[in-house]
Amino acid sequence: MNMDLLEVIETEQVPGAKFEVVQYKHLKGSDDLYVAEKVFFAKQAEVHLKMIRITLEKSEILIEPGALYFMKGYFQLESNSQGLSKGLMRKFTTGETLFQSRIKGTGEIYLEPTFGHYSLFNIDDDALIVDKGAFYCASAGLDVSAKMQGNVSSALFGGEGLFQTQVKGSGVVVLASPVPTDELLMYELASGEKLSVDGSFAFARTSGVEFRAEKSGKSLLQSATSGEGLLQTFTGPGVVWIAPTEEVYKRLAMLGSRLT
């Protein structure tokens, strides 16, 4: 493999494991004219094909089944449900798969390439609550489970459903992000400080942040006439990551589907 074709755009590591988002600098194209046209426009728009590369040194990782692309080294691959009851809970409440794959050993691991985006988070004895289906892989020492919303308003009107995915412990987790990492905005909230979002583009939050749906006005009538309706409200202490450009990309994608 010609490593000169790849460049590293983000890195996080813990003892025994280094996680990198690598991307192809450019694609050479295809003998299929349709594919070649798409590759040309992707290059013009600076859209890159990306992979997660993990370097292990006598350590282990947890990945979603089907994510493995190839690996080189001395590895043991096994699947487990992390406990049947916990696995079933995750499967039916967050959309994550029932079984997960664990890779142990030393060497390099590459996960499936995509034109999508990844974000790396280094968690230090804390918990991160993320969008359903966002979990991709994690280092040893992290536990992935379903987290029930803390109140009725957030479950019924918050736009996130009754359960989200919780990643708890210490280590690095890789999440599939709806936008490039540098388009995510991070807000550190003091105790009692609020962040209100009109839409479902909050991506992740630390466990100390309270989430609920609140009226934008003092009454339901005011909320209706203001055009804002219910807001996703996050109250500190803790950190919240939001993806403001996500809704714009969704609207552009819907417009494109109507034109084709």
Rank of each mutant, 00 (worst) to 15 (best):
K18D: 09
H117F: 10
K215H: 08
V152N: 14
L128R: 06
F70S: 13
A36N: 10
L120T: 01
A67M: 09
E12P: 02
F115Y: 15
D126T: 09
G236K: 09
E12L: 10
A190Y: 15
K194S: 10
S153N: 10
S207C: 09
D143A: 11
S219G: 05
T260S: 06
L259R: 09
G116S: 14
T235Q: 07
E20T: 02
V197A: 06
H26I: 13
S223I: 07
L33V: 12
G116P: 04
L27W: 07
L68Q: 13
L162A: 12
A138D: 04
K38A: 12
S177T: 05
S145C: 07
Q44R: 06
K218E: 03
A176F: 01
F234A: 05
L111Q: 04
M89F: 09
Y24C: 02
F234R: 03
T233H: 05
N2I: 10
V14Q: 08
R251T: 06
G236E: 10
S101Y: 13
K147M: 07
L195F: 11
E160D: 08
S216T: 01
S59N: 15
Q82S: 15
E247Q: 14
Y34A: 12
K25Y: 06
K50F: 07
H117L: 00
E214F: 03
M148W: 03
T235R: 05
S200F: 10
H117R: 01
N80W: 08
T165Q: 02
